Amino acid sequence: MLELHGITVLHAENGRAGIDTLTTHPETDLILMDVMMPAMDGYTATETIRSMPQYAHLPIIAVTAKAMPGDQEKSLAAGASDYVTKPVDADHLIARIRHWLDLS
């Protein structure tokens, strides 16, 4: 879906792999962080990324299927910039990405 909008997508299976991918691709403009991942969950990965000074202001949009009360607050407390739930509404997600990348 994102690639149809001209967005280059890098994929990682878990938070640790995501951090490794990020550090090897410093040109990354935004992260979609799945909250529920094996090995290292999205909360821990987000906190780890936020602890790296070079990524302190990188937009991170947390994505979760759980959508339980308090999940949004927990994501934002971990350092996420925004929060969307699954199933993802494509138009809403693109709007959030455009907002964080300041695209018109």
Rank of each mutant, 00 (worst) to 15 (best):
L2V: 14
L2P: 05
L4F: 14
H5T: 06
H5A: 13
H5N: 09
H5P: 01
G6H: 05
I7Q: 10
T8E: 15
H11K: 15
H11V: 15
H11W: 14
A12G: 10
A12S: 12
A12C: 11
A12D: 07
E13D: 15
E13N: 15
N14G: 10
G15A: 09
G15P: 06
R16S: 11
R16H: 09
R16N: 07
A17M: 07
I19R: 02
T21D: 08
L22W: 01
L22K: 00
L22V: 01
L22R: 02
H25F: 03
H25N: 13
H25M: 04
E27R: 05
E27A: 13
E27S: 07
E27D: 14
E27I: 05
D29I: 04
L30F: 03
I31E: 03
L32R: 05
D34R: 08
V35W: 11
M36T: 14
M36I: 14
M37P: 10
M37S: 13
A39W: 12
A39P: 01
G42H: 05
Y43H: 09
T44S: 08
T44P: 01
T44F: 02
A45C: 12
I49P: 00
S51H: 08
S51K: 11
M52Y: 11
P53H: 14
P53W: 12
Q54V: 14
Y55C: 03
A56C: 08
A56P: 03
H57W: 06
H57F: 08
L58H: 02
P59H: 01
I61Y: 01
I61C: 04
I61A: 01
A62F: 01
A62E: 03
A62W: 01
A62C: 06
V63Y: 05
T64I: 11
T64Y: 07
T64L: 08
A65C: 06
A65R: 02
K66R: 07
K66E: 04
K66W: 04
A67S: 05
M68W: 01
P69M: 03
P69E: 02
P69K: 03
G70D: 08
G70E: 10
D71S: 08
Q72D: 13
Q72S: 11
Q72L: 10
E73P: 04
K74G: 07
K74T: 13
S75H: 04
A77E: 09
A78D: 00
A78H: 00
G79W: 00
A80P: 04
A80R: 01
S81N: 04
Y83P: 06
Y83M: 12
V84G: 10
V84L: 12
T85S: 13
V88M: 11
V88C: 09
V88L: 12
D89C: 13
D89P: 07
A90I: 15
D91K: 13
D91A: 15
D91M: 13
H92P: 09
H92K: 15
I94M: 10
I94C: 06
I94Q: 06
A95R: 10
A95W: 11
I97Y: 04
I97M: 03
R98M: 06
R98E: 12
R98I: 05
R98H: 10
W100F: 02
W100H: 12
L101K: 05
D102R: 11
D102N: 13
D102I: 07
L103F: 06
